[in-house]
Amino acid sequence: MALNSINTNSGALIALQNLNTTNAELQTTQQRINTGKKIASAKDNGAIWAMAKTQQGTSNSMNAVKDSLQRGQSTIDVALAAGDTITDLLGKMKEKALAASDTSLNTTSFNALKADYESLRDQIEKAATNAKFNGISISDGSTTKLTFLANSDGSGFTVNAKTLTLAGLNLTGTTITNAADAKAKLTDLGNAIQTATNKLASLGTASTGLDTHLTFVGKLQDSLDAGVGNLVDADLAKESAKLQSLQTKQQLGIQALSIANSSSSSILSLFR
């Protein structure tokens, strides 16, 4: 037989426990909806939270890698632009040298060609030394190689420098003094053009390698971010449905507690 007591109301205690449980679940669900995460802190699930933080740190570090690779791309692009200009100038120098090798020229015409030749020569040096990005050049002979970040562990992607100055093309101090000398310079200029194009081809290969690795790093970062999301992100559709259910359950719990509390007042009827 159930005990009629005003000191202990078992029904109310049970209803209160159930209501408190529902309120706790409702608070958790609301927090997930507000933050968009099912694991927002270490107390939600320490192991998963730690794993997600580690992967998130790796993903964030990839931003530095991408920045470094993009600087590498820009540095090479500047060198390639200078190289295009230099090969054009070499072609014009060869044209001037060929014209100056004509023994039928008078002194005035030869000197004019010589001046053009030397002007083109000086422009080559300027193009090579001015081809800098952020103060760094791989075409002026100031460095032998540059290493850019390749991964979050600090490993690098090395690009070998290619000197495109007159010294790098074996044309230091080159000039033409007469028709015979101009004819002899044709071989030097042909070799310089071949050397320049070989060096530019190598830089182009390095640029392609940087592009490929940068694409890979971007995909890797996306995969890491997706993995972190799978670990900690909440299913908002599921949480929304659960919220509706818990709100209904909360209202029913309040009513059940009210009914359980009112049962004690029925004892008063025994004393009338």
Score class of each variant (00 low, 15 high):
residue 152 S to H: 02
residue 31 Q to P: 00
residue 135 G to V: 12
residue 72 G to R: 11
residue 158 T to F: 05
residue 189 L to P: 03
residue 69 L to E: 03
residue 256 A to M: 00
residue 54 T to I: 06
residue 49 W to E: 08
residue 7 N to C: 02
residue 264 S to Y: 04
residue 5 S to Q: 13
residue 121 R to E: 00
residue 63 N to Q: 12
residue 109 S to I: 03
residue 28 T to D: 15
residue 262 S to E: 14
residue 218 G to D: 10
residue 234 A to G: 00
residue 228 V to M: 12
residue 117 Y to F: 15
residue 6 I to G: 03
residue 120 L to Y: 14
residue 193 I to Y: 09
residue 66 K to R: 07
residue 40 A to L: 03
residue 45 N to I: 04
residue 155 S to L: 01
residue 161 A to Y: 07
residue 30 Q to K: 13
residue 221 Q to M: 07
residue 64 A to V: 12
residue 177 T to V: 04
residue 15 A to D: 00
residue 28 T to Y: 11
residue 263 S to F: 05
residue 247 Q to T: 11
residue 235 D to V: 01
residue 96 K to V: 00
residue 45 N to E: 04
residue 122 D to S: 14
residue 12 A to V: 08
residue 42 A to S: 15
residue 247 Q to I: 05
residue 141 G to K: 04
residue 110 F to D: 09
residue 184 A to C: 04
residue 255 Q to P: 00
residue 23 N to M: 12
residue 220 L to R: 14
residue 178 N to C: 01
residue 33 I to N: 02
residue 170 N to Y: 04
residue 234 A to P: 05
residue 52 A to S: 13
residue 208 T to E: 05
residue 167 A to M: 00
residue 119 S to L: 15
residue 237 A to T: 15
residue 35 T to P: 02
residue 169 L to A: 07
residue 236 L to K: 02
residue 85 T to Y: 01
residue 238 K to E: 14
residue 234 A to W: 10
residue 71 R to K: 08
residue 47 A to G: 06
residue 178 N to H: 06
residue 96 K to W: 04
residue 198 N to Q: 15
residue 22 T to N: 08
residue 266 S to I: 10
residue 39 I to N: 10
residue 129 T to G: 02
residue 152 S to P: 08
residue 149 L to D: 11
residue 97 A to P: 05
residue 41 S to Q: 15
residue 70 Q to K: 14
residue 155 S to V: 06
residue 113 L to K: 10
residue 262 S to V: 02
residue 179 A to R: 11
residue 214 L to T: 08
residue 157 F to W: 05
residue 255 Q to W: 02
residue 14 I to Y: 15
residue 162 K to S: 15
residue 240 S to K: 09
residue 129 T to R: 06
